[in-house]
Design a protein around this nucleic acid. Structure first.
Lengths: 324, 324
DNA sequence: CTGAAAGCGCTAACAC
DNA sequence: GTGTTAGCGCTTTCAG
């Protein structure tokens, strides 16, 4: 290949990485040879030689969860054309699995690592730190990120919802949350909600904690249980729109008018929320924005701009619709 | 590291790959040294030396689409512990993007490639073929797969739905499909439905084609348009449960009883389908099963069992509920 | 601006 | 069963 272009191997390598530092005619010959041989640079060899790979390890709890899927898609789009490839791993909400994933991803000598959340095993943090690469945590906030963190405050989500329901005249509050022993972000939203409720003089919200992942079925059974425990409940915060959807249908089956008899608020602003009857009030997390911001920070770091770490709060937005 | 264990480098390499061909005491010393130095094998160097990487390139139209997310998750679980990593790419339903992705994935010398669908650009197929690695297509069937294909027939989905609606006494049919110029699997479901309808003596179904991706909002507007075009429609096949959900809500707003005035059938058996009011009749595609089957085939191929190519039909299942 | 030489960390023959 | 010897295809000094 170098022979065909009549230049040395190293010149080819240079031409490929920084086309403008080689003379135009040499570049032309190389481009031509590349086309003729349909040559493709071997990323693996490149990674080995330069000791920095062209992968970015991304670890999320679950790819099924559309919150993270949106972030991944945005991240991928944001990194498109950079030559970096995403290596994806699911923890299934297990810190131990996360540790294993980090460990095996580091064997790829990735250019950077992206993790979900701020709570990790100490070995995980240690491995990350000693790898010396940019580390991005996401979907939460922290005063002491490993390196950089971009997300929002789940407690404020709970607070915002409480304030909204209070404004709409809620009297007795309910809460349905799923998978809270594993998904501590959901637990944070609950905490923000409950604390704000108590501070505002409400009775403690009646709570149903679903053991499984958020689902519409769970929302339906959750609402039934909630009302069985206290029929006076007139406003319920569901930790996820999917739960809210199930609660909405269940309210219909129970003959409860929404929002007249029961106000329902979700979280996620999933695509169907606006199409429900009544349209679902919810809180929109910056899922895509997180991915794009990470791509931006990553490109900055990887292309040399050595700005330090930090915490980036992308905020959330209450989307008031007719269900509250 | 080899020095610490008092053995040669190649012995270490052997011990790591086939632990049982080295003597137990040497193995012990190596294990200890690994622990002491918290050594991690460099996959990149391994890939370069052996010319076969430990990645599996997986290309899907969109990670946001929960159908594919389910497959990916199952595939990941099926490959867990094998040491292979998934490299994920989204085509955004573009064959051209697919070609680029295949091209850049091949630079990683992956152990195998997994693509969605059976229709690819000829360069894509050529590149894949010349790479000599196992290639898996999925979510469709084909008599002439590149290598192996695992999926089901989208046309039969349409046929099954038609038969079901006919049994339930449908008289005038409607169809709402999304993104059909890009997503030809949806188009196949439509074809199966329309052909079967005509064969069964129905008038041609009234069709609404949504330009965007499947969404509940689209389902709502789609149903409205459908009924505007022919108020006599009493059964509608929605190409996706999300569309069906929107149609369900819209039917409620229009004061139509489901299934009394209007039967609605979806596709996907998305998690909320069972929780709707009324619960949604739908067709369940074998999303997880596809992922698991691919993992099985892949492991067979990668571990030597050289069974040839083939087409694996995993079938679909009608899930009759109360909406029809 | 270009070429030569020395590896990156591992695997894969091949001897011992 | 274990050690030796060559590379894998690139990047990266370092000279010219």
């Amino acid at each position: 290949m170098a022979r065909l272009a009549g230049v040395s191997i190293s010149t080819v390598s240079r031409a490929l990485r920084q086309p403008d530092i080689v003379s135009p005619d040499v570049r032309g010959r190389i481009d031509e040879a590349i086309a003729r041989l349909s040559y493709r640079r071997n990323v693996v060899a490149g990674a080995l030689a330069s000791a920095r790979g062209m992968t970015i390890g991304v670890i999320i709890p679950s790819i099924i969860n559309s919150f993270f899927a949106a972030t991944i898609e945005a991240l991928e789009q944001g990194m498109a054309g950079s030559g970096y490839q995403l290596l994806l791993g699911n923890t299934g909400y297990s810190a131990e699995t996360e540790r294993q994933l980090v460990s095996s991803f580091l064997a790829w000598s990735p250019a950077a690592m992206v993790l979900t959340g701020r709570r990790h095993q100490s070995e995980t943090v240690g491995a990350l730190l000693s790898s010396q690469i940019p580390v991005l945590e996401m979907w939460e906030l922290s005063d002491h990120p490993i390196d950089m963190i971009v997300g929002f405050s789940h407690r404020s989500v709970g607070q915002i919802v409480l304030q909204h329901l209070a404004r709409r005249g809620a009297r007795q509050l309910g809460f349905i949350g799923a998978y809270m022993d594993k998904d501590y972000r959901t637990a944070d939203r609950r905490t923000g909600f409950v604390e704000a409720a108590l501070q505002s003089g409400y009775d403690a919200p009646i709570e149903v904690h679903l053991p499984e992942r958020a689902s519409a079925i769970g929302g339906a059974t959750g609402l039934k249980e909630l009302l069985a425990r206290n029929p006076g409940i007139d406003a319920v915060f569901c930790s996820n729109d999917m739960i809210a959807l199930g609660a909405l249908f269940e309210a219909g089956r129970l003959g409860l008018a929404v929002p007249g008899d029961l106000k329902i608020c979700g979280f996620g602003d999933l695509e169907f929320a606006a199409a429900c009857e009544p349209p679902l009030t919810t809180v929109r997390p910056p899922g895509r924005e997180i991915g794009l911001q990470i791509a931006k920070l990553l490109r900055g770091r990887l292309e040399g701009t050595t700005d330090g770490g930090g915490s980036f709060d992308l905020g959330v937005e209450l989307v008031p619709r007719e269900s509250t």
